[in-house]
């Protein structure tokens, strides 16, 4: 069974609950340094959600020169191995969803790991913009 985060930006209100929860789930601290990001387009009253879609034909995997990004065939997750990351940022440019962020202090990238199978962002999102559902 493959589950992934379904994203519907039209429903997003920009409350940042997902962003704050994500930073907290991964670092035990709340901050805006998160694996999911929200861009508010104020004039249009809408938001864009940047988070990994765990693509089947993932561009980030194809461009990564070190094999730090791989597809897990069981869970469907695009898995990141920080040991192999050389901080070249090719994946950041390749991702069509702006879903990969760079961690300056460690000189590596950071991406959604589905919180090990129970993503907190989908749990805290009350608008339906993020839902964790079975896709295959």
């Amino acid at each position: 069974m493959i589950k992934s985060i379904l994203v519907d930006s039209n429903k997003c209100t920009g409350c940042l609950s997902c962003v704050l929860s994500c930073s907290f789930a991964h670092t035990n601290k709340f901050s805006m340094q998160s694996r999911i990001n929200i861009k508010k387009i104020k004039r249009e009253g809408r938001c864009e959600i940047y988070v990994c879609r765990q693509c089947n034909d993932a561009q980030c995997i194809s461009v990564c020169p070190t094999g730090a990004l791989k597809k897990d065939s069981v869970s469907g997750e695009v898995v990141f191995d920080s040991e192999n990351c050389i901080g070249c940022k090719l994946c950041i440019s390749a991702c069509p969803y702006n879903a990969i962020t760079f961690l300056d202090e460690k000189n590596i990238i950071e991406k959604c790991d589905l919180c090990g199978g129970d993503p907190i962002c989908a749990k805290v999102c009350t608008t339906g913009a993020l839902t964790f559902i079975e896709t295959e």
Partner: peptide
């Protein structure tokens, strides 16, 4: 046209 959520 849209709803807006304050922080959290």
């Amino acid at each position: 046209k849209g709803r807006s959520g304050c922080a959290s």
